[in-house]
Amino acid sequence: MPTYVAFLRAINVTGRFLKMSALAEAFHQLEHADARTFINSGNVIFSASSDSAQTLQNSLEQQLEPLIGFRSEVFLRSGDEVKAISAVANDLKARVSNEGDINVCFL
């Protein structure tokens, strides 16, 4: 099964607070038994057998809302996409001074 990373928008900001254990449990309830969160960010790493990332993303947005108590947009990327983004960011790091940093945004 492919690995995905779900980036949930506006978790633990703007008054929408959610414990990461509750978020992981919501994913477990949606039959993603291996779901685990990354820091206190609303990012979830999990496996899914979905044929379409877009269908999975839409499904997660709809199914998570009643479980977490509010609607959060989901930006879904495959594990391979996240690794590729990380590799590009690491390559760009060489161009940035020690005081600088690389930030990645999903729009």
Rank of each mutant, 00 (worst) to 15 (best):
Q54V: 11
I11L: 07
F46A: 03
L64G: 02
N12F: 09
K93N: 03
S59Q: 12
H28N: 12
D51V: 03
N103K: 14
S78Q: 04
A26D: 08
V82Y: 03
T14I: 05
A53G: 15
A35T: 08
S78F: 02
M1R: 12
D34A: 03
A35C: 07
N103I: 10
S50I: 06
N103S: 11
A24S: 12
A24I: 04
A94T: 15
V74K: 03
F38E: 12
I39Q: 12
Y4Q: 14
A53Q: 14
N43T: 12
F27E: 05
A53P: 15
S21H: 04
L30T: 11
K19Y: 07
Q54N: 07
L76P: 10
E31G: 00
P2Q: 05
S59F: 06
R9T: 11
E61C: 06
I102P: 14
G100Y: 04
A94L: 08
H32L: 09
V13D: 07
P2H: 00
L23C: 07
V96S: 04
I11S: 06
D91V: 05
V5Y: 11
G42A: 07
K19L: 09
G100H: 10
A87D: 15
E65A: 12
V74T: 08
Q57H: 03
G100C: 01
A48N: 12
A84V: 05
A22S: 15
C105K: 09
N103Y: 00
C105I: 10
I39E: 07
N58G: 13
L56T: 08
N58S: 14
V13P: 10
Q54D: 13
E61I: 06
K83N: 14
A94P: 07
S21T: 15
V13A: 03
F7V: 11
I11A: 02
L107T: 15
G15L: 11
D101E: 13
T14A: 14
F75D: 05
L76A: 02
G42H: 13
T3W: 04
Q57W: 01
N103F: 01
S41Q: 12
E25V: 01
E65R: 15
N103D: 07
I102G: 06
S52N: 13
A87Y: 06
Q29P: 09
A53K: 15
V104P: 11
K93Q: 10
D34G: 10
L8G: 04
E99A: 08
D51Y: 00
Q57R: 14
I102H: 01
N58I: 05
K83L: 13
A48M: 03
A10Y: 07
Q63C: 01
S49T: 11
T55Y: 04
V88P: 00
T3C: 02
D101A: 12
F27C: 02
P66V: 01
T55V: 10
M1T: 15
L56V: 09
S78R: 03
F75W: 12
S52Q: 05
F46M: 02
S49M: 02
R36S: 05
V88N: 00
